[in-house]
């Protein structure tokens, strides 16, 4: 590339980076600036008399704290469930050829063509009867339905990437099927499994619709923010938005090496 073209190229890259980062920076200003900053006019583009106090006040609102706790519980349950159910299925898809594998794969892929969260609607009735309505566990069940297809396909790719010969070598050198899995396959798959788990967590943490439909008092953070949106002051909304974003950004950083395994490969 010539000098001028290189300059244009990198300006483009920088502009796109700014496009992503500046809005996050600005909502952080809103979250830390509190009431004063939220209604200030014209706005300052740097932090003035910022403090963690503003954010802490927001978190001290009782509903918020509970909702955040519910979100964490639901997301953790989703993470555990989708991995516990999805990883064995992924292993079966990767290692065995069996009748019905195609049908199962199709069902998993089909979930992609459906707006799954909407399926929470009819579940309300069932959940009320089963005592799951308005519980983080109920929310986690629906979120698992969202995350499970990902977990299954991603782990299938993950396990397929671990040479079968390694497992066979373990068998030949004295391992049972389970021992070989625990000693050879699992340690190799662990980082990828962790990424898939984190991803399931983020799916649940971010989901709004099903969580709103399935809870009334034990809201998750997203559901809580959605319902109080209209009546909450601006700086609370900003604080809420910021609190929602932070874990996601950290998570994406943690799983960045696996993003392709999570999205790219599994979409083929």
């Amino acid at each position: 590339m010539t000098g001028a073209r290189r300059l244009m190229f990198w300006s483009g890259v920088a502009a796109l980076c700014a496009w992503v980062l500046v809005p996050i920076y600005l909502i952080a200003l809103g979250a830390f600036g509190g009431r004063a900053a939220a209604f200030r006019w014209p706005k300052a583009f740097t932090l003035v008399n910022a403090s963690l106090e503003q954010l802490a006040t927001f978190l001290r609102i009782e509903g918020v704290w509970n909702a955040a706790l519910n979100s964490v519980i639901a997301a953790s349950l989703t993470m555990a469930l989708s991995l516990l159910l999805g990883a064995p299925a992924g292993y079966a898809l990767a290692r065995y050829r069996f009748r019905g594998a195609g049908a199962f794969r199709l069902m998993v892929l089909l979930t992609r063509a459906f707006p799954l969260a909407i399926l929470a609607l009819p579940l309300t009735v069932v959940f009320i009867r089963a005592g799951l309505y308005d519980t983080p566990f109920g929310v986690a069940l629906v979120h698992t339905a969202l995350a499970l297809p990902f977990a299954a396909l991603v782990t299938a790719g993950l396990f397929a990437g671990i040479p079968r010969e390694l497992e066979e070598a373990a068998w030949v050198f004295g391992c049972s099927r389970l021992q070989a899995f625990m000693r050879v396959v699992l340690p190799l798959a662990l980082p990828g499994l962790a990424a898939a788990a984190i991803f399931a967590f983020v799916i649940s943490w971010n989901e709004v619709f099903a969580a709103s439909v399935l809870t009334v008092r034990n809201r998750t953070l997203t559901a809580y923010l959605l319902t109080v949106l209209a009546e909450s002051p601006l700086h609370y909304r900003f604080a809420g938005g910021f609190v929602l974003i932070v874990p996601s950004v950290v998570f994406i950083f943690a799983v960045r090496r696996y993003l392709f395994a999570l999205w790219g490969v599994s979409n083929r």
């Binding site: 040479p163 010969e165 066979e168 070598a169 068998w171 030949v172 050198f173 004295g174 391992c175 049972s176």
Partner: peptide, 14 residues
């Protein structure tokens, strides 16, 4: 395989 008392060298070494 574990009970056959053998060892193996694989094509990709494994």
């Amino acid at each position: 395989p574990a009970d056959r008392g053998l060892a193996m060298v694989f094509q990709n070494y494994a």
